[in-house]
Design a protein around this nucleic acid. Structure first.
Lengths: 211, 211
DNA sequence: AACTGTGAAGTTTTTCACAGCC
DNA sequence: GGCTGTGAAAAACTTCACAGTT
């Protein structure tokens, strides 16, 4: 369907779709077949109207009177988000974090497969981390190009993040998930998202009562 | 100062303050003394007007004609966010992720200190991870109460996240950073934030061109 | 009776644009 | 000349409320 997807959908709406998808997969695990904007909203702490409006951007996925067939809606959201396929991803940085990311089993069934793990440090290169052998950054460009990899996760120290990002972009990467606690500049054609636990913690401490 | 902080500041504004703080610390490392809303905005890809308006909620931190003194602004933002002190934090879950979090050196100088690492698994309990010895979940309540800990990071499997969160809240925790890829329900007096890399990746794949 | 999809209304957030100060 | 702080305007986003369908 994707009926109206040629219109410009607000980015804030796109950002909520993965949350819907995650909750729907959960409902599916609970053996449910059908849900409603109200049930979904209660789980996500989002208003039912918001969910209906968000979904309506892409066409009518529900049925009046009954709600949404979970399996069908999952499929449709996966289509919209283009995660009905497996994206190859590289991880750069084989420190604590890069290794933890590489070992995490939760990417696979949500559309992503880690293909390679890179590091600069000669001590790390060649190291076996589960199914990965740490590769030298020198091979980054060729590997990404040869395999047509579009997505990278960046887990290097802040000082090196920009320079590695530049190399990734140069190699053809179109989306970067940056774990380094620093802002990075990329061409506007490249997607970037940040993960920095400290910003979340600092956001929450604003509301805490005392020391 | 915190002149107008008794008004209700929009949460979306609060969420940007940690980003400002992070960028300012960076500028400071670069030996700069003064910055402007324009410079800051360029680094963060946020409009200068937005930055000025955000900061103006808390009083006048800048000087017309010259801009913001970096050191002073950092201090003020730390005051606003209550990170001019060190918050004790517990990590629950001593798997790959929990261990990586516990080893991460980046919390300390931004207002947080990991005090304890917990796990349920008898195999994990007693294990030494850097300066931590993995403690049993059974001790969670007493430890958090005794030490007055207000913040927890949750790195357990999705199935256990809600039940552990309930125990944390019960023990008096007021803010939870949840790394498990599942929505959790907490009383409205408790802050919750989520980290799920896959939602970020799925957000970005929407914009990618092809498989 | 229960629920979706959606214009219209309401609210929040961002940007504009400029007076006032350094 | 360069910059902040801020009302006013504009844009974006959310909620309301209900016609229409199962």
């Amino acid at each position: 369907m994707l009926a109206k997807s040629s219109e410009n959908i607000p980015d804030i709406v796109i950002g909520r779709l993965p949350l819907y998808l995650r909750a729907l997969r959960r409902l599916q695990q609970e053996e449910k077949d059908v849900t409603s904007s109200h049930e979904l909203g209660k789980r996500l702490d989002i208003s039912s109207a918001q969910i209906r409006k968000d979904l309506s951007h892409f066409g009518g996925f529900g049925k009046q009177g009954t709600g949404y067939r979970i399996e069908y809606l999952i499929e449709k959201l996966q289509d919209v988000l283009q995660v009905n396929q497996e994206w190859m991803v590289v991880v750069v940085g084989a420190g604590n974090l890069g290794i933890a990311i590489s070992r995490y089993r939760g990417f696979q069934d949500r559309g992503f497969r880690i293909a390679h793990l890179f590091d600069v440090s000669p001590q790390k290169i060649g190291l076996a981390i589960d199914e990965f052998v740490v590769k030298p950054i020198a091979d980054l460009n060729k590997t990404i190009r040869d395999e047509g990899i579009k997505i990278a996760m960046l887990a290097v120290p802040a000082e090196h993040a920009q320079s590695v990002a530049d190399q990734l972009v140069d190699a053809g990467v179109q989306a970067i998930l940056n774990y380094a606690p620093i802002n990075i500049t990329v061409p506007s054609s490249v997607q970037i998202q940040y993960i920095d636990p400290v910003t979340h913690l600092q956001h929450m401490t604003y509301y805490l009562n005392e020391g």
